[in-house]
């Protein structure tokens, strides 16, 4: 009986959370189509003009271009740097390995706001701050470790005997990489790539601290317009938010075909011996 009550409480809580989330998200959507909306359950008349308004007034074509460019380059670089490191960390044991893992873990553990300010200071000192390169370099900082920690378990699952057999049969290192490791690690690369893509598009703090006039990503531009509330009609800001949401949702639908939800956060497993 008591077990039933607990279960009921559980579902009620989940239901409450989902209703609340639904309310939050749909309020933004309804508002983006509203002509005017003051204190009524729904707007009296609807329009789509806020989308064209937002697209033109906020220069969204340029902002979207920046966002996609940053995201794709970050995914590519994170995988390029993370792939070999994850392979070695999965295959070898060496002195100082725990220390190295800690080094990779720090950018994920320490909040971006904490290291973002010194990072922005440094980048502005060298004149990279405010540029597209600066944004890419800054957002990449937590993504390289993310790539490594996602890829490591995938390499651990690939039997080392496959590599030995290939070696015995006379395959060169490059052939082993090309014919055995790469195809088998492809699911891992896909998972890591998608998660990094979602994370980069929705990354706010680092992109915000480092971006300048021409290098704002979509979230950063959205923040500036929400923050400057009153200057822009709230409906146009909501239209922009819906465009951002659509982009993330599309990525998420793709992501969830390959990734389990629990993979999207840290793993709290026991440390490996």
């Amino acid at each position: 009986m008591r077990g039933r009550l607990w279960r009921l409480a559980l579902y009620l809580f989940v239901l409450g959370f989902i209703l609340n989330l639904l309310g939050i998200v749909s309020h933004v959507m309804v508002s983006s189509f509203a002509k005017r909306w003051f204190g009524t359950p729904l707007p009296r008349s609807f329009t789509t003009e806020w989308y064209t308004y937002a697209w033109n007034e906020f220069g969204l074509a340029q902002v979207l271009g920046v966002t996609l460019l940053v995201a794709l380059i970050v995914v590519f670089l994170a995988l390029l740097l993370g792939f070999p490191a994850a392979y070695i960390l999965a295959r070898r044991n060496f002195r100082g390995k725990p220390l190295l893992l800690l080094l990779y873990f720090l950018p994920l553990l320490i909040p971006q706001m904490t290291y973002g300010i010194p990072l922005a200071t440094t980048l502005f000192k060298y004149g990279i701050g405010g540029t597209l390169t600066g944004v890419i370099l800054a957002v990449l900082v937590p993504m390289v470790p993310l790539a490594i920690f996602i890829l490591m378990p995938f390499f651990e699952q690939i039997s080392i005997n496959l590599e030995w057999s290939a070696s015995v049969m006379g395959a060169s290192r490059f052939q082993i990489f090309r014919r055995i490791l790469l195809p088998l690690a492809l699911p891992g690369l896909l998972t890591a790539g998608i998660l990094i893509l979602v994370n980069t598009v929705s990354n706010f703090e680092l992109a915000f601290l480092v971006s300048g006039a021409g290098s704002q990503t979509l979230v950063v531009a959205l923040f500036y317009n929400v923050f400057a509330g009153g200057v822009r009609p709230v409906y146009s800001v909501d239209a922009m938010a819906v465009m951002y949401m659509t982009m993330v949702m599309l990525l998420l639908i793709v992501a969830l075909r390959f990734v389990r939800p629990t993979q999207m956060v840290f793993r709290l497993d026991q440390p490996r011996r």
Partner: peptide, 27 residues
């Protein structure tokens, strides 16, 4: 349920903030 719970993580804080302002706001 777990999929729905992933949504707020991916939507990010700015969109949530804008929605909370509308949903929980005075009007």
């Amino acid at each position: 349920i777990t999929t729905i719970l992933v949504l707020p993580i991916s939507l990010g804080v700015i969109l949530l903030g804008q929605g909370i302002l509308g949903f929980y706001g005075g009007k």
